[in-house]
Design a protein around this nucleic acid. Structure first.
Lengths: 161, 161
DNA sequence: CGAATTGTGGGATGGACGCCCACTAAAAAA
DNA sequence: TTTTTTAGTGGGCGTCCATCCCACAATTCG
């Protein structure tokens, strides 16, 4: 029987140190299954960064690109050249390969700091997102939970249907 | 053979100590049937936490994940991953895996303290909720009972019909 | 070339938590 | 009633780890 990888969950409060580092909870980090600390950092949405297992991110990315290609082949993107350009640009700044140090600390790279919208010395939330780890601006996290939690039951029912 | 679990009932007054621990009544705790003290703590509603048998919850969740994985294999990749992420985020802030100590004490984790809305040294109510144990803010419990008790007779009739 | 900035590593410290024992009050037994 | 047992609560101690702080290297800038 195929082993399902553990669902990554958990909510932790962390401090961004003066060097823009975040020490990840080992409970979450070990579930990413990254040997050598190599992973992918993604701009998920304003106020939220995603940290992925490199292989898994690659797979997801290829699936996305494959979809775009198939649509292209079907001629559905002819009037959307501009959007394709935009997609290309976004892909360029969207992710960065990062390495965790021996204490499971993540150094948030330059462009990602403003995107997260936090100052050195302030708090962030570290949250398990099923298949990835996410770093949240606390205010964005609060707003997100408020908005999405009401639909939790529905989502669970939907997925277990 | 599957044993019908005993209905968990009972109402107890307990102290939240200065380390945010609550000692559970053994009468309730033993009905959860947790060896090794592993269980799942849930934010049920503001002022109320639920404590569940971990295996029960795990089994349901694993089934969900397994189902999602099979759907993934069938091709609908990205939007399902998106839903999986969403589910993971909501689970992260809603649930926490906890371990009872040798005296059947529950350590209330950080995010759950504010949600319960009680100070260290104050009282909480520990209530059997049929299949789970609930920790209540006393004021929330009082308000809940006031509101729901009038319908008790009707509910009993309905369930025993 | 020197100074400031930034990435990287690691020692030191304090706080949180798990483990375990002590005290007390209440219940049960004698 | 007195004695014994049991359960709730408090807290000491050791460990782990998040954070603070410093050292050093690499890079950039004046």
């Amino acid at each position: 029987m195929p082993m399902a990888p553990a669902l990554i969950t958990g909510e932790f409060r962390r401090l961004l140190d003066d060097r823009f580092r975040i020490s990840l909870p080992q409970e979450l980090e070990e579930k990413l299954a990254v040997e050598s600390g190599q992973c992918m950092l993604i701009k998920e949405r304003v106020g939220c960064l995603g940290l992925w297992n490199a292989q898994m991110w690659q797979a997801k990315l290829e699936a996305d690109v494959e979809l775009v290609k198939s649509k292209l082949a079907a001629g559905k993107l002819h009037e959307k050249i501009g959007e394709l350009q935009l997609l290309g640009r976004l892909l360029s700044t969207r992710d960065a390969s990062v390495t965790l140090d021996d204490r499971r600390r993540l150094l948030v790279p330059d462009g990602f700091r403003q995107f997260l919208g936090v100052e050195p010395g302030s708090e962030v939330m570290v949250v398990g997102a099923g298949v990835s780890i996410e770093i949240w601006n606390p205010r964005a996290w609060l707003a997100y939970v408020r908005k999405r939690m009401p639909k939790f039951r529905k989502l669970l029912n939907h997925l277990s249907r």
